[in-house]
Nucleic acid binder design. Structure first.
Lengths: 349, 349
DNA sequence: GTTAGCACTCATCAAGTTTGAGTGCTAATC
DNA sequence: GATTAGCACTCAAACTTGATGAGTGCTAAC
């Protein structure tokens, strides 16, 4: 059933007011502050209908109305106007973002910062998944007789490394052979393929060297690959929630911070989201703990291939229009910055 | 002036009680729960003296006494008994810490975790400063015609890298020469020396190559060096403060979290602390913002040279004895683990 | 269909009251 | 002279009470 023009107008006014004030909205306030041309009593009747239809709720009998998740969903889908950023805002954002960029990690981190500053919410930014990246070469650099550094370099220029310890002294010559063997076996494989593929025996390597490969190098190799595959998650504006009336209760603030601090869980949640601009409201979120939050994410791309995400998390009462615009502007900027030369030679500092 | 035996006993009891309950301690409670053998009235007289001497304070006229910073200082210096960890505690800590260690970063991070779990405070762990580490080799790995990865390897096995973009296409041969020149110039220099030393002209490099060194590589080189020098700070148990009555006020909790979130400032504060087990109470802390916190840090060493720190931050009311024991046990463990082979081939994942 | 009017509800706030844990002082006791 | 019992006093915290006001639903008039 479609809502009448008037009901839509009233609902929109309630949502706007509630997003601004965080207070339940009453019929009198509505008729006074919004140019609806009808009396409070009529508004009450309409609100009663809207409540029956599930768009509004009532904290208690004699309080104003609060938009439900269903209302926010309707608002986001149909009623939200495109919010244009001012020229100053755009310039300021671009300036902060592009100042002396050399690395994606850096820029992405700054995006989270800018986003949290503008929206006054908790922002996050995720570096791209490297699924399609392939191994280019593998090196073993001697440190002392028993220790070396295993170094992997990918086609896109990502470098990652870990220490390897050997049971016995190993010569530089042996290290070179081992590295050569590994490069021969893994070159051109994607990172995820390399994770599953076993080290193949090679004519040049003897039994002893093979043992080292299996027992000493393999664990570090796997960990390094996982490091390269893993996305990094930057968060900013965690303490912004203290300014929101929704979290002016210690328990709620605590729960929020504890949830967000579990970075691994949160990263998984993010990875599973679709690409593009995605808004999930309250219980639409998979994660039980996010059931009274809204999450907005958008995707940026590096070289048109690898995809990363940035976004915000906050109460269901948020400025969906403004936040969405800012996020979109940020992702556009990042995508542009890393389009031409494919400068994704990021490291993990 | 020295305190009488009895005053010391009373003060100790007050401190013990206050650390446990966080409530001002009254004379009746004291005489009931502690075997002091004197009546509340006598205790009141003694407490009055102790207050005059600056060891106790009075939140308001008719409330119990609270230990002052001076009292905590006295307690820590003279009255605190050595708290022995139980065998189970030790085993549990050692197990969590040493499970499958390959890297210092990893172990240090886990130390912060264990520490925050046991103490229910906010714990932190700082990786060692690399001042004494020297450069071993410098490499430039081609990514595409305009991009390379600059890689530095130090004597201790630390590897760090950053992307370099060139104004024009650069051949692999050129990269090799550039890397060779840099290695020649910087090998054996400590990281901090390398930061200040300029690139010296070399017979093998022509003017064009020199220009690239200056304009394209230098910025990345400096950043990479700074990355290698920089300590990493891991924090854990941030939300533990929500369980403390000291922070059951939103503003206080917020201030604490905002302070601790400024990692750079906090790192500087930590670096400036002396080595060994250091306890600073309230206003003894340099940082204004820490004026109602106590901080305990201890130092671990890697190979007897590089020094890192771990510690906790919490209200001045904390279990100084227990916390100190745990921190000491942790630093001992880390130092032991990284003593023999000097396996500090950490990276920055 | 719309609106004015009215009785009712309920969170919030301020003012007053009670309670109890604490103190300091004084006079009696050891 | 040191210790203690007794008592008047203080003050935060918890509870009570009543007023206020923003809100509702319902009904009857427009």
């Amino acid at each position: 059933m479609d809502l009448s023009e008037r009901k839509l107008k009233i609902l929109q006014a309630i949502i706007a007011d509630f997003i601004r004030t965080a207070e339940p909205v009453g019929s009198r306030t509505l008729s006074k502050n919004y140019d609806l041309g009808i009396s409070p009593a009529t508004i009450r009747n309409e609100m009663s209908d809207l409540e029956e239809l599930g768009y509004l709720t009532h904290p208690h009998t004699s309080s104003g109305r609060v938009p439900s998740e269903k209302a926010y969903r309707l608002y986001v889908n149909q009623m939200m106007n495109k919010h244009e950023l001012t020229m100053e805002q755009k310039c300021s954002i671009a300036a902060q973002l592009n100042d002396n960029v050399t690395e994606l990690e850096n820029m992405v981190q700054r995006a989270a910062h800018v986003l949290s500053e503008i929206t006054n919410l908790t922002a996050f930014a995720m570096t791209p998944r490297k699924d399609l990246d392939t191994l280019k070469y593998i090196n073993l650099l001697p440190v002392d007789d028993y220790t070396a550094v295993l170094m992997l370099v990918s086609e896109s220029g990502k470098v990652s490394n870990k220490a390897v310890r050997f049971d016995k002294a190993v010569s530089e010559e042996t290290l070179r052979i081992l590295a050569k063997t590994m490069t021969y076996n893994y070159r051109g494989k994607t990172l995820s393929e390399a994770l599953t593929q076993d080290i193949i025996e090679d004519v040049q390597t003897d039994a002893e060297a093979m043992g080292m490969l299996e027992n000493n190098i393999k664990p570090s190799f796997v960990k390094t690959l996982e490091d390269m595959l893993n996305v990094n998650l930057y968060m900013d504006g965690l303490t912004n929630i203290f300014s929101l009336p929704e979290y002016n209760d210690l328990d709620k603030a605590r729960m929020f911070l504890e949830m967000v601090n579990k970075k691994e869980d949160f990263t998984k949640t993010l990875i599973n989201r679709e690409n593009g601009v995605i808004i999930t409201i309250g219980n639409e979120n998979q994660d039980e703990l996010l059931s009274d939050c809204s999450v907005i994410t958008a995707t940026y791309h590096v070289n048109g291939k690898q995809l990363g995400k940035i976004g915000v998390i906050g109460p269901t009462r948020m400025q969906y229009d403004e936040v969405t615009s800012v996020i979109e502007y940020l992702t556009d900027n990042i995508s542009k910055a890393f389009m031409i030369t494919g400068g994704d030679g990021d490291d993990e500092s």
